[in-house]
């Protein structure tokens, strides 16, 4: 199973998470988002970029409540709240945003 990024195949697992974290590009993010029926806007990118830097620093994808708390702290309560985050990522901010960010499925995600 793979995504087609301008002719290059990028492998993913059965749930759509990419196999090699190093394969991630912004183009790929857009393609994964389309598969999730999400059109990336500035707010989506803020969350995705936040997740990538969180992973870079701590080597884990945060659980959803941790993600929302951390976003609230760094970007304020207008973005960092449950309602807004689920509007951006209807099938779950941690799950969908992590997939788009090229990260593994969050630990403890059921």
């Amino acid at each position: 199973m793979s995504y087609d990024v301008n002719g290059t195949a990028v492998e993913h697992d059965e749930e759509g998470y990419i196999t090699n974290l190093g394969d991630w590009t912004e183009d790929l993010a857009g393609i994964i988002a389309s598969a999730e029926e999400i059109t990336m806007n500035e707010e989506h990118w803020e969350v995705v970029n936040f997740l990538r830097s969180y992973y870079e620093e701590y080597q884990i994808a945060p659980a959803v409540r941790v993600l929302i708390k951390a976003i609230k702290k760094s970007m304020g309560p207008e973005i960092g709240n449950n309602k807004y985050m689920y509007e951006l990522f209807p099938y779950g901010p941690a799950k969908q945003a992590c997939k788009i960010a090229g990260l593994p499925k969050p630990t403890g995600c059921i």
């Binding site: 701590y58 659980a63 941790v66």
Partner: peptide, 9 residues
């Protein structure tokens, strides 16, 4: 590095 994230949890 993950130990440093545990405060968030």
């Amino acid at each position: 590095p993950t130990f440093r994230a545990l405060g968030d949890y």
